[in-house]
Nucleic acid binder design. Structure first.
Length: 646
RNA sequence: GCCGAUGUAGCUCAGUUGGCCAGAGCUACUGAUUUGUAAUCAGUGGGUCGGGGGUUCGAAUCCCUCCAUCGGCUCCA
């Protein structure tokens, strides 16, 4: 007998070799029907595998993340089976589950595939699913595996096999399809009830641009039809929040082919939003001891030769601008730090001055590949809320903590969504890739980890993801459609102080090299605003809203009173406007609601007589009548509540 | 840059077995209406159907090419 411990701590005894499915059945038939896989001692297994030792066991159903991913992984196999049936001779790359669904990379040879073919494939998948074929696991020797795929002519699988060790190789078969696969899988195809292929894309084999490009087919499946319908509805809703759509509707920004792709044009309302964000952060930075600096949009080639960016990125940058007479080369600045280094060098520094924090909203230009551009999140010209901190090695941790505080303050004031702090460390196997001493790296990495832990951040550590010049901490958030973007970033840099030969005089009267920290709480204003728009669905917090209050007169007889109210509000720095159109009040309200103006003030005879306003809040409706003073206090309270939380 | 899809008025979209002067709603403009919490009525304007080339008696519709956009891949100082 073996002892099985369940997540609730209960322990039960079973005969040796019992499968998780049998365990599930012993608990209830209903549970057994829903079991997709099992977590045995923390590792996900097929529910049909026998258990031979004392273990902890968690039965995975659709509600568990790993249950879903097992389900989708098995669905990828099902799609492969359908594809092989429909397109004989097709070759397969890899087919993993992803956050929402799965994909499979295939090589169609001479053939092509488009979304017009989806219906056919979906139908085939459903047909095969109905058969309820079991997923059968089989351990195979490397030799047998190679001969199987060799015979089949599946060169990608053979390529994968090269890196696998004999004795660890398993096949999974369902119906007529056998795949090289580590597993695990769900019991059988019968639980796959709803299938939707989402899109098709090119993907390089093994992610290498030089390898052959395969066709990647994305799909998603569910155990119930209704869940698919709900998912599609959710996607539709998410599309409504897309910043590209809202940016156009709310007149925040636009693009022009004539100006150039990836170069956003900020419309008046968007520009005001930016200005509010800028002044908000500038104020916070001033309080935190930052010193403003301003640098030009171009820089001499020598600057980037010194910084090393010319060597690394020169060929992939916008090409240099030349002076007509001397032929000197200038680059559009791709980053602000080299300029800031030169500012640091403009005079000698004492250890007593450090840290020095130079801040600038610097607009930079980078050549991004044309297929990469994406709304405001990926552009060719953008403004970083950049700052460079020059400090002593022993100050790194404290500075990190302070920057984290600043980032958290920003996120909190904006009621910002869930984010993950990603700590990127160097690859310990490959230390020669990185610049800077071992000692400094260790100190900095430890400082980042400790600082993040002390601030209670939800962190993910990525080993080997550090830049060559230093470790970093990035704040990652998701957009409406679930795509991940990096916003805020804090990076330690040992490279630039070295290259620019930055120094300070220590207490020992010797020259020392400062550590540089790059940091940007927003990351870039463009990307930050994009994510902000999607997060709040265009309903900006009152303090950011480009139009805070709109005054709607019942008829144009009351426009004078409306204008009077608007003037009074403007005198208190409230962004107030009057809708003077000759329209009915219902129409004016509708238009203001659509424009997502936070407050609407309805004024007519009643209000003129009692010297008041009727307040309507966007999305909430009528709040009743107030005096103008009361209303202003109401606005002020709302703004203070958002900005003053600490 | 690569794979696939898309491109019709300022916006959202109809319109292809190739066929008279290419349509609707909203917006804009003009007029009427003087209105109480999500769309008042009428009229007018607006498109070399993404650009270029080709096939054809005839192209928004078929073909080629370029550009841009969308979904991915690769990249992202």
């Amino acid at each position: 007998m073996i002892k099985i411990t369940f997540p609730d701590g209960k322990v039960r005894e079973y005969p040796k070799g019992t499968t998780s499915m049998e365990v599930a059945k012993s608990i209830s038939e209903g549970l057994a029907r829903n079991v997709l896989a099992a977590k045995v001692n923390g590792v996900v297994w097929d529910s049909s595998r026998g258990i031979h030792d004392d273990v902890t066991l968690e039965l995975l159903t659709w509600d568990a993340t790993e249950g879903k991913s097992t389900f989708w992984h098995s669905s990828a196999h099902l799609m492969a089976e359908a594809l092989e049936a429909l397109y004989p001779g097709i070759q397969f790359g890899i087919g993993p589950p992803i956050e929402n669904g799965f994909y499979y990379d295939v090589d169609l040879g001479e053939g092509t595939l488009s979304s017009d073919d989806f219906k056919k494939i979906e139908d085939k998948m459903l047909e095969l699913a109905k058969a309820g074929n079991q997923y059968i696991r089989k351990e195979v020797s490397k030799k047998d595996a190679i001969s199987y795929f060799g015979e089949k002519g599946d060169k990608y699988k053979l390529d994968l096999l090269k890196d696998l060790e004999d004795g660890t190789i398993t096949f999974y078969t369902q119906g007529n399809f056998t795949d090289l696969c580590r597993g695990p899988h769900i019991p059988d195809t019968g639980s796959i009830k709803a299938v939707k292929l989402m899109n098709i894309a090119g993907a390089y084999w093994r992610g290498d641009e030089k390898s052959k490009q395969l066709t990647r087919i994305y799909g998603i499946t569910f155990p119930k039809q209704k869940e698919l319908t709900d998912y599609l509805t959710l996607l539709e809703e998410a599309k409504k929040r897309d910043h590209r759509k809202l940016g156009k509707e709310l007149e925040l920004f636009t693009f022009s082919e004539k100006v150039g792709m990836g170069l956003p044009l900020w419309l008046p309302k968007g520009a005001q939003l930016r200005e509010r964000l800028e002044s908000f952060l500038k104020k916070a930075q001033l309080k935190a001891g930052y010193l403003p600096v301003v640098t030009p949009h171009i820089g001499h080639k020598d600057l980037y030769v010194t910084s090393g960016h010319y060597e690394k990125y020169g060929a992939d940058s916008f090409q240099p601008i030349r002076t007509p007479a001397e032929g000197e080369e200038f680059f559009l600045k791709p980053m602000n730090c080299p300029h800031h280094c030169e500012i640091y060098k403009s005079k000698p520094h004492s250890y007593k001055e450090l840290p020095i924090r130079y801040a600038e909203f610097g607009t930079v230009y980078r050549y991004e590949q044309s297929g990469e551009l994406h709304g405001l999140t990926r552009v060719r010209g953008f403004t970083q809320d950049d700052a460079h901190l020059f400090c002593r090695p022993d100050q790194v941790k404290e500075e990190f903590m302070k920057v984290i505080d600043l980032v958290l303050y920003v996120f909190r004031a904006l009621d910002f969504p869930e984010f993950t702090a990603q700590i990127s460390l160097r690859d310990p196997e490959n230390k020669s890739k990185y610049i800077g001493s071992d000692e400094n790296w260790e100190k900095a990495e430890r400082a980042i980890i400790e600082a993040a832990a002390e601030k209670g951040l939800k962190t993910v550590v990525e080993t080997g993801e550090a830049a060559f010049y230093g470790p970093k901490l990035d704040f990652m958030v998701k957009d409406a459609l679930g795509r991940k973007w990096q916003l805020g970033t804090i990076q330690v840099d040992y490279n630039l102080p070295e290259r620019f030969e930055l120094e300070y005089t220590g207490a020992d009267n010797q020259k020392h090299r400062p550590v540089m920290i790059h940091r940007a709480p927003f990351g870039s204003l463009e990307r930050f605003i994009a994510v902000l728009i999607e997060h709040c669905a265009g309903n900006f917090p009152l303090w950011l809203s480009p139009e805070q209050v709109i005054i709607l007169a019942i008829s144009d007889k009351f426009n004078d009173y409306a204008k009077n109210v608007s003037e009074l509000l403007k005198n208190s720095d409230i962004r107030a406007f009057v809708d003077e159109r000759d329209e009915k009040i219902g129409r004016k309200i509708r238009d203001a609601e659509v424009r997502k103006v936070p407050y609407m003030l309805v004024v007519g005879e009643k209000e003129v007589e009692s010297n008041s306003v009727s307040v309507r809040r966007h999305g909430q409706g009528d709040l009743g009548s107030m005096s103008l003073d009361q209303f202003q206090k109401h606005l002020n309270d709302e703004v203070m509540l958002a900005l003053n939380q600490k």
